[in-house]
Design a binder for these strands. Structure first.
Length: 715
RNA sequence: GCGCGCAUAGCUCAGCUGGUAGAGCGUCCGCUUGACGUGCGGAAGGUUCCCAGGUUCGAACCCUGGUGCGCGCACCA
């Protein structure tokens, strides 16, 4: 006993974790009320950051807490293939060796991506274990594993049957660098100071920020109440264009045109601007595409092949020569930027797959309005509703190779050269149709596109639990049987814990897709943790060099200290500043817990402790017990309300300042000075009792040190 | 432009259902050779919780307006 070291050694944590895992502690017991959480699957893009640390610390604290309360806890781990992000990274890596994806071909490239994936998956798992995440590893899932691919295909087929997925040509956000469409949510906007060009279109002048798109103009639009232009509405105006040739355009009237902006007249280029596209649809204007997928001018003529910015300069110069450029003014522009590649988004008309959101978004709003799904903090609801109100249909196809292949099949013969860009409708089926229903003879070609990463993420809460349930009546393997019961037992899940930054990407889509496919909500509660910032309140980013590596911190201070430093002082939805000093505070706390336990254990010695007689307690002890009772009562209430930071601080304060500073000192004096062996034993037993009761509460937050104490000191 | 959030000790932040302000770090003083790579005790420090009104017996906490900062959303070409 006397050899208990004075410091807790966190180097043994991995072994300790292994022993818990091997003992099956993290598996659901199947007894008691089910409590389920599916972790937000980290991307296989690389290593984990502090945001992950926070999310998994919260997950694990809650999981351990619920387990302690006797719930049947399922904590299901997984990882996400992150289609666009990972493909981009692998491409960059290959480019360093001078290899291009297009030269390799799809199959070879995918082999490379799987190599990458297979390298990172075990690393991610090891990291999560290092955090202490008490997840059931036998249920680990990856969004590209076989089961997930089946679920995704099935989801696509069913949503298509329901009329919720359709294919069509619409103006989409095109990333010219990654050569793929991206969704509205993958586009960021950058404020830049650009130029506004005032250009003469005969009798009407127009102000535009993108003169190069004038090659694709199909109308001029004005506001119907604008007296200046009234006489032209419905007419065609004739004007000299950038090459001095005469050109005609119709003038239309639309209320969306702001008479105050620029000249009050707008050139309409449906193929290259979202607003113009809407106008084009509304007024049945032709759409003339003049920019191609590489961001180059595709229109024939002197500008053909030029990049848009080059074409802009040349066109402006030509206009000026002809006296058609009135002036150039400065203007603040919101430039659309691809979140992933940083490229300037080119709005282009393109044939893509979409998910219809009109019906789904109403149901999704209702689920939260009715209280079926609760958000913490509650104010996130407003942001959620606002997003749903403004939601357009979701472009789900991506021109990538890494991801879930779209289960759409085309007839080779109908499309002429086996080109997918056929006008014929594809067949939607989970498997390649054995016989082509169109020509009756060809081997059908699968759509080359893959699905947006968030499609598979959207069905994650149930695809991980065995959805779709096997239709066959025959008994499957035990594996299938157990998965099937997972869905019935653990779905809808109890809690989703994630960052508010993926409210739209993920949370909202899970709700919509779950309602469409399972007719149920995916989870009952959602807890949004806040962003982890550096000690200056800045976002952590590699370029700023202010990133702290959670695993390095764990190596240095131990997992408990890092977990508590992330949870302590964190409240739902609010950003928190983080620094190594905070970890130090909790490392010291761990040391304090260790030594208080050490003293308690040593002072008890080998003497057998009898049951404490509560009647013989003195006033100080009785008071202490009352306060401990209150602490125990508050703890589950705070955690149930996801006030983890408050719950932890309460334990910290009580343990350190009430228990260690006051009570131990008080009993120590008695133990050292009292001549009554009974009284001494009472002090020893009392300390042991209150220590154990506190350790029980602390184990949710600091499992490693608490379990080590229990194993090495308490018997 | 619209929406959301935050403003409390030098710094970072707690403060549950309203009752006369707390922690950690930092600073200062003292103590401690036996649980504690330290710890303990104490002190200073908030004109009382951004400003101005209001509700209330009573507000940091509720309401209104304002200021500053952060975040999200947005088709002004």
């Amino acid at each position: 006993m006397n050899e208990i070291p004075t410091r807790y050694d966190h180097a043994k944590e991995p072994d300790l974790y292994k022993s818990w895992e091997e003992a099956g502690e993290f598996k659901p017991t199947g007894n008691g009320e089910p409590f389920s959480m599916i972790i937000p699957p980290p991307n296989v893009t690389g290593d984990l950051h502090l945001g992950h640390g926070l999310t998994y610390a919260v997950h694990d604290t809650i999981a351990r807490h619920q387990r302690r309360l006797g719930k049947d806890v399922l904590l299901l781990p997984g990882a996400d293939h992150a289609a666009i992000a990972v493909q981009h990274l692998v491409e960059k890596k290959l480019q360093k060796d001078g290899v291009r994806r297009t030269e390799m071909g799809r199959e070879k490239f995918l082999e490379e991506v799987w190599k990458w994936t297979n390298y990172y998956l075990p690393r991610i798992q090891a990291s999560l274990r290092r955090f202490g995440l008490s997840a059931d590893w036998s249920r680990f899932r990856f969004t590209m594993d076989e089961q997930s691919q089946k679920a995704v295909t099935e989801a696509f087929v069913r949503l298509h049957e329901q009329g919720l997925i359709y294919q069509g040509t619409y103006l989409i956000n095109w990333d010219p660098k990654l050569q793929t469409a991206v969704s509205d949510d993958e586009v960021n906007y950058q404020q830049i100071t650009g130029k506004l060009y005032w250009i003469k279109y005969g009798p009407i002048s127009v102000a535009t920020t993108r003169p190069e798109t004038k090659l694709g103009d199909t109308a001029i639009a004005v506001n119907p109440i604008d007296q200046r232009y009234k006489k032209y509405v419905g007419q065609e105006i004739e004007f000299k264009n950038e090459q001095g040739a005469m050109q005609k355009l119709p003038v239309i009237a639309d209320e969306s045109v702001d008479p105050e902006f620029g000249t009050g007249a707008l050139k309409v280029t449906p193929a290259h601007d979202p607003l113009d596209w809407e106008l084009g649809q509304k007024h049945k204007l032709p759409s003339k595409q003049v920019i191609d997928q590489f961001g180059k001018i595709s229109a024939e003529g002197p500008y053909a092949g030029l990049k848009t910015l080059e074409a802009r300069e040349k066109i402006v110069a030509d206009l000026e020569k002809l006296g058609l450029l009135e002036k150039v003014t400065e203007h603040n522009i919101r430039q659309p930027i691809s979140e992933r590649s940083g490229a300037i988004i080119e709005p282009l008309p393109s044939k893509q797959w979409f998910m219809k959101t009109t019906a789904l978004k109403n149901e999704a709003a209702k689920a939260v309005q009715s209280g079926a799904i609760k958000f913490y903090p509650k104010n996130v609801e407003k942001i959620y509703f606002h997003w749903l109100e403004n939601l357009h249909d979701w472009c789900i196809s991506r021109q990538l190779w890494w991801g879930h292949h779209i289960p759409a099949w085309y007839c080779r013969n109908a499309s002429g050269k086996g080109q997918v860009a056929s006008s014929k409708e594809p067949v939607i089926a989970a498997q390649r149709p054995k016989k082509c229903p169109i020509c009756g003879e060809c081997e059908m070609v699968q759509d080359p596109d893959v699905l947006d990463t968030w499609f598979s993420a959207g069905i994650w809460p149930f695809s991980t639990l065995g959805w779709p349930l096997p239709r066959a009546k025959s008994r499957g393997s035990d594996d299938i049987a157990s998965q099937q019961s997972d869905f019935t037992r653990y779905f809808p899940t109890s809690l989703l814990e994630t960052g508010a930054d993926i409210l739209f990407f993920w949370v909202a889509r899970m709700i919509m897709m779950s309602q469409a496919l399972t007719k149920q909500i995916p989870f009952k509660e959602v807890y949004f943790h806040g962003l982890v910032l550096d000690d200056q309140g800045q976002k952590m980013s590699k370029s700023k060099g202010n990133v702290l590596d959670p695993l390095a911190l764990i190596d240095k201070y131990g997992a408990d200290a890092v977990r508590m430093s992330l949870i302590g002082g964190n409240s739902a939805g609010l950003p928190q500043r983080f620094s190594e000093q905070k970890v130090l505070k909790y490392r010291n706390f761990v040391t304090k817990i260790w030594n208080a336990a050490r003293f308690t254990a040593l002072s008890a010695g080998n003497s057998k402790l009898e049951t404490l007689n509560s009647k013989s307690l003195d006033e100080t002890e009785k008071k202490f017990i009352k306060r401990l009772d209150a602490l125990e009562k508050d703890n589950p209430r705070l955690i149930a309300g996801y006030k983890l930071g408050v719950a932890l601080e309460a334990l910290y304060e009580f343990f350190w300042h009430d228990f260690a500073d006051q009570l131990i000192e008080y009993e120590k004096k008695i133990i050292q000075e009292s001549t009554d062996p009974g009284r001494v034993r009472q002090s020893q037993e009392f300390l042991m009792l209150v220590l154990k009761r506190q350790l029980t509460l602390l184990e949710d937050f600091a499992p490693f040190v608490v379990r080590t104490i229990k194993k090495e000191m308490l018997h």
